[in-house]
Every structure is written in C-alpha cells, then in structure tokens.
Design a protein around this nucleic acid. Sequence first.
DNA 1: TTGCGTCATGTAATAACGTAACACAGATCG
DNA 2: CGATCTGTGTTACGTTATTACATGACGCAA
Lengths: 144, 144
Amino acid sequence: MAHSHDHHHHEARPDLTRNQDLVLRTLNGADAPLSAYDILDRLRDDGLRAPLQVYRALERLIEAGLAHRLESLNAFVCCADAGCHEKASGTAAFAICSKCGRVDEFTDPEVGERLAGWAGVQGFALERTTIELRGVCQGCRTAA
Amino acid sequence: MAHSHDHHHHEARPDLTRNQDLVLRTLNGADAPLSAYDILDRLRDDGLRAPLQVYRALERLIEAGLAHRLESLNAFVCCADAGCHEKASGTAAFAICSKCGRVDEFTDPEVGERLAGWAGVQGFALERTTIELRGVCQGCRTAA
DNA sequence: TTGCGTCATGTAATAACGTAACACAGATCG
DNA sequence: CGATCTGTGTTACGTTATTACATGACGCAA
Ligand SMILES: [Zn+2]
Ligand SMILES: [Zn+2]
Ligand SMILES: [Zn+2]
Ligand SMILES: [Zn+2]
C-alpha cells in the first residue's frame, strides 16, 4: 500500500508506516511535548508494547521533518513550522514554557546564518543545531 | 574547611565544597564532556559512592557559572568562556564534534540579542537558553 | 518456484540517566 | 541550649534509551 487513494490527509505524507502514523497522530493530538514513554502509554490500546517501537517511529518522523526532539526535555513534538527545514535559514528554535508546557516553534534566519557563519570560519562541518529557550509564556505571565 | 589558605588556584573560586571541587577538577582534567556517571566512576577512589553526590555538586557548579550541561549529550563540561555569563550578549553556544567529542564554547552577541528580541516581542520571560551545534570539527575533517 | 536482500516489526533484557526520601553532621544565631 | 540552614551519605526507586535477537512482509532475480 505504498501508492493509493487513501490520503484522507491534506498532505502527501512520505508514506508512513502504521506505527509511525500512530505516533505522529499522538503528537499532533497533544498540547504539550510527550516523552517516548508518554506516547507508549497512549498507544497501548493500539498494540504497542515496547519503548523501541516508539523510538523507531520517532526516529523516522524526525528524519522526515515531521517531528522534533526537545533535548532539554527529553520529549518530542510534531513540527509546527513547515519552513523550518528549508535550507537557508531553516534552523528551528523552540520556546518552552516551564509553567504550562506549551512549545512555540519558530525560525530566525539571522540566527541560523550567524551560527552557520561561525561554523564556516572554524571549519566545523555543521550537521544539526539545537536552540531551546526556557521561560514563561505570555499567557502564564498574565495569568499570574 | 570552607575558608582557608589552600587556594593554590589562580582564581578566588566562590568557596567550593570538597565534592564540588572534586567534580570541577575532574571536568577540568577531561578533554571531552563527561556524564554524571563518568564523573562518579572517576571519583570512587575519593570516596564518592552515589550519583546524587555528583548531581548535587554539578548543580552548584552550574549555578556558579563554572560548568555547563550539554542537553543533547546528557553530559557536562567546565566553562571555557569566562564572558559567557556577562549579561548582555552572554548566551553560551557549544559546538560538539561527533567524532572526537571535543566541545568548543563560544558566544555570539548578535544571536543572543535576536533570541532575546523574539522573546520580548512574544512576551516570553526568557530564563535560560540552550544552543548546541553538532557536527565534525576541523581537526577531525582534515584527519579524514 | 525458490532463494535472497531489505525493511519494518515484536520482545526481552539491560544500560544509562536522574530523583525522592531519610538520616546525620557542622556552622550559625537567637 | 534549641532552632535552623547547608552540605553530606545512603538506599531505593523512577525515567529514559539501547542492545540483541527473532519474525514477518515485500521486491527481485536465478
Ligand atoms: Zn519544525
Ligand atoms: Zn505557559
Ligand atoms: Zn561558559
Ligand atoms: Zn573532532
């Protein structure tokens, strides 16, 4: 079932397998980052039993640019900025609220260029960049 | 033995306790990031037995600006850029070589300002920023 | 058809990373 | 003196991630 007419989904996703699709839906349905074990718990009823099943799916989703890992949280979110992988200035950054857990993904071309520039000068072959901001979101601040 | 005359070390450190000093020396003596358990293993002969002893020391060292945690590695390094905590443009970034493990700490004021600027516009109360570059350092590339 | 690579999957066991809870010792201050 | 604060030591536990091995589905070529 690689090519077919069952794309009830607005985008031609890069052919997800069942487990990958389950994990991606779970991430999409969450309003905060989920750990691999959170995801596993939510997918027990769908037959997933072991962490590795989740980690393997996450690996592919991240490769495909459909999800991100938040290193400072050991958790995962689905990509919320389609342009974050457009090379040239496509370095995703994440603002993570310590109060409510919400995550805001954004890109700043200037930041990406500065870091790439540093790498160029140093002869550092840049493969991946992690930018994570921790703090309190506006909603949580005004709700104080 | 908190105050004494045994500061054979060039800087007036913020009065480290024995465990903090042991951990900091270990980090200083390493040529790559160390996990908390790496540190623990190296300090068994000095009497440390449990992970918590290391984590507590690391917590203080990081607060004091003497060490950093690398989130993408779950490991720790000692601070290599005294200016990285000078507020105004003092956001530390780390370039981590996937081949040899070496870490290069640097700061780019422009990057710090752009991220702080985004936070300001969004009403996000920024507390902490993580910037980590993964790739291959020049030494490892030319040694290919 | 059979055999062979490749990829996803399933499962168990274990490694690696991190924290809660409790008890104790020394310093400081009324 | 007791009250409190900070650092310490220890046990036990919780969370996150990987290794190793076995199986099943598919495409393809002999
Ligand atoms: Zn993204
Ligand atoms: Zn919030
Ligand atoms: Zn530093
Ligand atoms: Zn290197």
